[in-house]
Simulated scan of single mutants.
Amino acid sequence: MPHRYKVGQMLELRSAPRHSNRPAGPCEVMSCLPHDKGPVLYRVKSWGESNERVVEEIDLSPSSVVKTVFEDSESVFTIAVNKR
């Protein structure tokens, strides 16, 4: 079964079952994990968190959220200096 989502795509992460601290909300696909059997897995990074999580495709859905230029590698300060 192929992966439905692509690296860099913004998605909505559903809240986790009980006994988990996984937040619901927007996340970015960091990598598509290989698999032979079982669920399709992704490594994702939620907004507001510094760690990445492995989640099943069933826990993800398309999102209307888009990445901004600030989320990549540039800070607000760098952009302001470059505009001078």
Results as ranks from 00 to 15, higher is better:
Ser31Val: 01
Ser64Trp: 11
Leu41Glu: 06
Arg18Asp: 12
Val66Tyr: 07
Asp36Ser: 12
Cys27Ser: 03
Met10Thr: 09
Ser63Ala: 06
Val69Met: 12
Val65Leu: 07
Leu60Tyr: 01
Glu49Tyr: 15
Arg22Ser: 12
Glu57Ser: 04
Gly8Trp: 09
Ser50Ile: 08
Leu11Ala: 01
Arg14Ala: 14
Lys83Ile: 11
Arg14Val: 04
Asn51Val: 14
Val66Phe: 10
Pro23Ser: 09
Ala16Thr: 05
Val55Asp: 00
Arg14Asn: 09
Val66Arg: 14
Glu57His: 05
Phe70Met: 08
Leu41Ser: 05
Ser63Leu: 04
Pro34Lys: 02
Ala24Phe: 09
Asn21Tyr: 13
Asp72Leu: 14
Gln9Asp: 06
Arg22Val: 15
Pro26Lys: 08
Tyr5Trp: 12
Ser64Gly: 13
Lys6Tyr: 08
Arg53Asp: 10
Phe70Asn: 03
Glu12Val: 06
Ala24Ile: 06
Arg4Val: 08
Pro62Ile: 01
Trp47Glu: 10
Ala16Leu: 03
Lys6Met: 07
Pro39Gly: 06
Arg53Gly: 01
Val81Gly: 02
Arg22Gln: 15
Ile58Val: 11
Trp47Gly: 04
Ser64Leu: 15
Pro17Gly: 14
Pro2Leu: 07
Val7Ile: 14
Arg4Ala: 09
Ser63Pro: 03
Val54Leu: 02
Glu56Cys: 06
Arg4Leu: 13
Thr78Trp: 10
Lys83Asn: 14
Ser46Gln: 13
Val76Gln: 09
Ser46Lys: 06
Ser73Leu: 15
Tyr42Ala: 01
Pro34Thr: 02
Ser20Tyr: 08
Glu52Trp: 02
Ser50Asn: 13
Leu13His: 06
Ile58Gly: 03
Leu11His: 00
Arg84His: 11
Val40Cys: 08
Gly48Phe: 05
Val7Tyr: 02
Ser73Ala: 13
Glu28Thr: 12
Lys37Ile: 07
Tyr42Pro: 00
Ala80Asp: 09
Pro26Met: 05
Val7Asn: 05
Val54Trp: 02
Val44Phe: 00
Val54Gln: 05
Trp47Ala: 08
Ser73Pro: 07
Glu52Ile: 00
Arg14Asp: 11
Glu12Pro: 00
Gln9Leu: 02
His3Cys: 00
Leu13Trp: 00
His3Tyr: 02
Glu71Cys: 11
Arg4Asn: 08
Asp59Gly: 03
